[in-house]
């Protein structure tokens, strides 16, 4: 059921998204200022400002928005699939597989697109391993999937540590940046925008079924949902979204876990509201975090994954506390 509250929430998120784009366009080691950004957007004038905005800022902001949207949407799906509020996009080891492959690529002296391609390959490998191991003939139990994912994830973790301890200092620095999540090298191509859009549309089509599935497999089956089929769709959708996000920016933590929860606490529990709201808030949140990451210690840059945690942790705790007080009343 959609209420006025939900419309207001979505409208506010749209405004926030527009605002976040502007902030993201204007901040960095060269401060453009909101006025200059608006002027350039409306009537571009050739020069340094235009070059910075169109060649550096806009592609990076778009990459941040898409990555944030992918992670938040993936988190929503993962939490329903595993019916576990603590699930995040990386819990089934997708980022681990991507990291091992990306780090191996860095170790061999590759960079740029090669690292991204390796990460994507590693993510796919991990998706298939977990799928193959967790699937039993009749059903997918959330526990079995979770256990398989967590164990595979731990395996990747060990391999990451081996790679880190045996690599030269130079590559360790790039590896650490990759592991913490970093948007400085990122370009999100049209393919990733398409994957986000496809994932979004597919999940909106299933949104009411997701509401039912959140109540349990049996409940959902009793209410007419083909649970096995839906879970298969969810597993592959969330995997693709995560793989795509990891390929763009490494493993940025926190967005996929916290954004869906923030929105649920703000009243968006119905997936028909939660899904669009998550994409918008996830995207905005990552753009803002990335703006901080490149301006706080400019001209140096922090890995954005650090900033998402630094902003996200207190915000989330605050909202959690407020909602506890409200439900206690």
């Amino acid at each position: 059921m959609i209420t006025r509250h939900h419309y207001i929430l979505l409208a506010l998120l749209l405004v926030l998204t527009a605002f976040s784009f502007l902030v993201s366009f204007s901040s960095g080691s060269i401060d453009l200022g909101l006025g200059a950004v608006l002027q350039q957007l409306l009537s571009p004038e050739a020069g340094l400002q235009q070059q910075v905005l169109f060649e550096l800022r806009i592609p990076r902001s778009v990459a941040a928005f898409i990555t944030g949207g992918l992670l938040a949407l993936s988190g929503v799906i993962m939490q329903v699939l595993l019916r576990n509020p603590l699930a995040d996009p990386y819990i089934l080891g997708i980022s681990g597989g991507a990291a091992v492959a990306a780090l191996a690529a860095i170790l061999f002296g590759l960079s740029g697109a090669w690292v991204s391609n390796a990460a994507f390959g590693g993510a796919m490998l991990s998706i298939l391993i977990v799928f193959g191991l967790a699937r039993s003939r009749y059903q997918w139990s959330a526990t079995r999937l979770l256990l398989t994912g967590v164990v595979v994830s731990a395996g990747w973790g060990a391999m990451i540590n081996i790679l880190l301890t045996t690599s030269s200092n130079n590559s360790v620095y790039s590896m650490l940046f990759w592991l913490m999540g970093d948007l400085s090298q990122s370009r999100a191509g049209p393919l990733s925008a398409l994957i986000l859009l496809a994932g979004f549309v597919l999940m909106m089509l299933q949104a009411r079924s997701l509401n039912v599935l959140a109540r349990g497999d049996l409940q959902a089956a009793g209410l007419g949902v083909d649970v096995a089929r839906l879970k298969l769709i969810l597993y592959f959708t969330t995997s693709m979204l995560t793989a795509c996000a990891v390929t763009i920016a490494g493993s940025i933590g926190f967005v996929g876990l916290v954004i869906p929860h923030m929105l649920r606490l703000l009243g968006a529990r119905d997936h028909r509201v939660l899904i669009p709201a998550s994409v918008l808030l996830g995207g905005s949140f990552l753009m803002i975090a990335d703006s901080f990451a490149r301006s706080i210690v400019a001209p140096l840059q922090l890995p954005v994954g650090v900033v998402t945690a630094v902003i996200g942790v207190p915000t989330f705790l605050l909202i959690l506390r407020r909602s506890q007080q409200r439900s206690a009343e």
């Binding site: 509401n211 109540r215 529990r269």
Partner: peptide, 13 residues
Amino acid sequence: SGNDDMPATVMET
């Protein structure tokens, strides 16, 4: 037995 780990209001349920 039901599964009530994920939040939802009584009406939504």
